[in-house]
Design a protein around this nucleic acid. Structure first.
Lengths: 196, 196
DNA sequence: CAGCTGACAGATTTCAATATCTGTCAGCTG
DNA sequence: CAGCTGACAGATATTGAAATCTGTCAGCTG
């Protein structure tokens, strides 16, 4: 049985949508294109996603969730010391973003458009990431390595202070010479501020 | 002698251009509008500014320079202790930006368009501001209050880490409840990291 | 009869004709 | 004659008609 004759699922629609977005870009990707790629009528797509916006939102969420999952491994490594985990987490976040932006700039631009139109999903993603950070900060406080009156507020401050190295709005700066040093300077300053 | 019959100077053209930008917005403000506001032909404007882009660049520079000048007073107050000056400087910067954005959102949006199209001018402005910060950091190091291997690099890190509170891209977040606390949390963390 | 199709109305986008603007410059004017 | 004007060519923006897309739904099909 060929893939095109399999049952139409939300999953298959999301995969086709990613492909259509990759090919046509965010401005020209239509629901009709997605249906055509799947060999169905566009009415069938609307059976799984109420609107085009909902479809694009789901694709956005998938994309963001992939980054969150990649980072959660560092949070879970509870045997390693908190400062190292904190530095590794930020380094992994920066590297992931930098590669996404640098390896396929067009696709990255496409997803930037998608995140811009899905503020709620992005908000949830940021809440997810600061949640991960909170776990590391709290572990540091419990181990007596970090000082933080409120691990949650401190995690938020850490995330915001490093925005230049993960906010897509700064993507162009990630290619400039010297960013790595700038990243390390900011993280060093923050880690010093965090130490007991 | 009425103002409209005075000599046509670059200064008068810049003032008229600001007014036209305020009235029509960045997309519809034309050189012809500026000339009309001054009661001259548009050819005369081109006598003082080679292109429309050069005119808009000059307006942008003027606007940014006003902020720099307002902050330079804090840098100059060398009798006060460096940590206070550093906090005051960031507070003044954040307040200035927040008011510009909040008091007249339309005008702020206009200048955001202008800064976006004048990267060089913005770069010089940022260099100016980090230069001011460097002076404060160096004073702190000299007084034994701050630790910083390179005051210049540290100043850059401080500026970048506080981007969320001065970069126009985050203007919408400046209205949200809780920003003040977030600002203080970030500055506290950075100042702690800076202390000897 | 669950799931899919395709015709349809209203919304949005495209495209090409038209209007306006930018930048130049020969000549006018005080 | 220094500074300004306004006509002009090419570039850019606006507009409105035509094409396409979104979202619905009555009916088809396996």
């Amino acid at each position: 049985m060929s893939p095109t004759s399999e049952t139409l699922t939300a999953e298959r629609i999301l995969e086709a949508t990613e492909e259509v977005l990759r090919r046509h870009g965010p401005a020209k990707a239509t629901v009709v294109d997605v249906a055509r790629a799947l060999g169905v009528s566009h009415g069938s797509v609307y059976r799984h996603f109420r609107t085009k916006a909902a479809l694009r939102e789901a694709v956005t969420k998938r994309w963001l969730d992939r980054t969150s999952e990649a980072l959660s491994g560092i949070v879970a490594a509870e045997d390693r010391d908190p400062e190292t985990r904190l530095r590794d987490w930020f380094t992994a976040l920066f590297d992931a973003k930098r590669h996404k932006a640098g390896d396929d700039p067009e696709l990255f631009a496409t997803y930037t458009v998608l995140t811009d139109e899905n503020g709620d999903v992005v908000g949830a993603h940021i809440a997810d990431l600061t949640g991960q950070l909170t776990l590391i900060v709290r572990a540091g406080v419990d181990a007596g390595a970090f000082h933080a009156a409120s691990p949650e507020a401190t995690a938020r401050a850490l995330f915001q202070a490093t925005g230049r190295f993960h906010d897509p709005g700064y993507a162009r700066a990630w290619e400039q010479p010297g960013v790595q040093e700038e990243f390390e300077a900011v993280v060093d300053l923050l880690v010093r501020g965090l130490r007991q």
